[in-house]
């Protein structure tokens, strides 16, 4: 009996351990799966490069985070079609201050004003390169005095 009990105990504890591991590792992926693109919009961030490089927008922050519905913005403020806003001539900061595009909410009362906290959305050329996995050009980010032989 003893001989059979020990392997069984081992097996049982292994089973428990495996279960714990699955739960522990599985948890974040479960949370990720909880993000439903049909409810909250595309998971992938939108990066605009016009008129300046570069501005990032994340559906997740606005829908899951701030509780906005799809029809809060679509299609009144933004067309769903990708690249639509970017193709418009008035897709700029002046237009935002007048309440267009992001400025519809980012007016200082509903959400932070468009002329404040610039780098919350503007990630710049360096932010763009990091996001796209582009390696910096030679000469950039070179510190010290050894460069340029």
């Amino acid at each position: 009996m003893k001989g059979r009990n020990i392997p069984f105990g081992k097996f049982f504890s292994l089973l428990v351990l495996a279960g714990v591991l699955i739960l522990a590792v599985g948890k974040p992926s479960v949370a990720d799966e909880g993000y439903d693109e049909d409810t909250y919009g595309p998971a992938k961030p939108i990066v605009w490069t016009k008129p300046v490089k570069a501005v990032v927008f994340q559906h997740k922050i606005h829908t899951m985070g701030a509780g906005l519905e799809c029809n809060s913005c679509h299609d009144g403020i933004f067309q769903m079609e990708a690249g639509n806003a970017e193709s418009k001539d008035d897709f700029n900061m002046q237009s935002l201050y007048k309440g267009n595009y992001c400025g519809a909410c980012h007016d200082g009362s509903m959400a932070f004003a468009s002329n404040t906290r610039c780098t919350s959305c503007h990630i710049g050329v360096q932010g763009y390169n990091k996001m796209m996995g582009v390696t910096a050009k030679h000469g950039e980010g070179e510190e010290g005095h050894g460069g340029g032989h």
Partner: peptide, 9 residues
């Protein structure tokens, strides 16, 4: 400084 958005123009 706080106006810079690194557009690098």
């Amino acid at each position: 400084q706080n106006r810079c958005v690194d557009c690098e123009r």
